[in-house]
């Protein structure tokens, strides 16, 4: 993302509170948003803009190493989630 976006206060937002995950343990929150993003893309097509909400959330919450690992697993067809 470009620098100009960051100087815009509107763009300074992160994943909001999710009532499904009120606990300290947020592992499932990260996982669910990751799966939802790929599921959303599969159902609605790659260009469907609202899907990117899930992407923004999982990028904010998930450690990058987890995301990389899962994306690798998807490519190799051995991802454990239902997409």
């Amino acid at each position: 993302m470009s620098t100009s976006i960051m100087s815009n206060v509107e763009a300074l937002s992160t994943a909001p509170f999710d009532a499904r995950f009120p606990n300290q343990n947020q592992t499932r929150n990260c996982w669910q948003n990751f799966v939802d993003f790929y599921r959303c893309r599969k159902v609605k097509g790659d260009d469907y803009e609202p899907c990117n909400y899930f992407k923004k959330v999982y990028q904010s919450l998930c450690p990058n190493s987890w995301v990389e690992k899962w994306q690798e697993q998807i490519e190799e067809g051995k991802f454990a989630g239902k997409i």
């Binding site: 993302m1 937002s13 909001p16």
Partner: peptide, 23 residues
């Protein structure tokens, strides 16, 4: 209602940080 998310990952033996909200 947080405005920023910061990820902290502990390793042997250092901490690594990720700020992935905007960039």
């Amino acid at each position: 209602n947080p405005a920023l998310t910061v990820k902290t990952i502990g390793h042997q033996w250092y901490w690594s940080y990720e700020y992935s909200d905007f960039s």
